[in-house]
Amino acid sequence: MNTAKGAIAFQQTNVVYPNGVVGMKDLNLNIEPGEFVVIVGSSGAGKSTLLRAINGLNRVTSGTVSVNGTPVPQKEGRELRELRKHVGMIFQDFRLVKRLSVMSNVLIGRLAHVAGWRTLLNLWPEHDRAIAMRALERVGITEKAWTKASQLSGGQQQRVGIARALAQEPAIILADEPVASLDPVTTHQIMRDLVTINQELGITTLVNLHFLDLAREYGKRIIGLKDGELVYDGSAKTVTESDFKDIYGREFTDDDLLNEDAKL
């Protein structure tokens, strides 16, 4: 689908928020193009901070984040827009324009690829409409293309969110708690979609999750964060119960599992 590669590297990266909260502490991390990485940790551990540092939504205080060897620009502007053009993001709360059609929402993923005067006048080239339609096909909701986003179910809205990211023809997809507002059945569908997209298109995919069984089921590589620090980095196959205890700093309960019958 595209030639841009999605390598990510953190070098001694720190994020301290204006209120003094440490979001990231001395992070060293390399992610190869095409990897599927699940990031786990309790709330406030710095999962979102990590994702948002990659597309420059959060500034880093010291150290560097780079994408394909280029440092992420630390101010708004043409360079940062150029980077974001190839980095898709999926949100817990979907973030769709509720009163617009599904198609219009997916076209938003083409904003950085199309001349500004065209996007402001809503005059999308045929080429970009075709890309948006293909993105909808991939998540299987072409028949909803002209439906208002507000009329879709949660799972369908998240699919539109994924299609919007795909329409960017991204090298990297960042999914920030993509299933936290969905029911268990929809959750598995969305996770499978993300895995399939990663396998078929080779898009580097980072997913924040707080359910441990989901992390283990869908992750290839698991990264554990605690208080902004990297405390685990390894294969999903070999992660143990005690590793999870280290990450969460406590015994875990049924609340940490999506499916209460699942055993770790």
């Binding site: 597309n55 939504l57 827009r81 053009k85 938003i108 904003l111 950085a112 919007r164 990211a165």
Partner: peptide, 12 residues
């Protein structure tokens, strides 16, 4: 913020 994240300009 989501529009910013796809690389949209201020006007977009």
């Amino acid at each position: 913020e989501a529009v910013r994240a796809v690389g949209g300009s201020w006007l977009e």
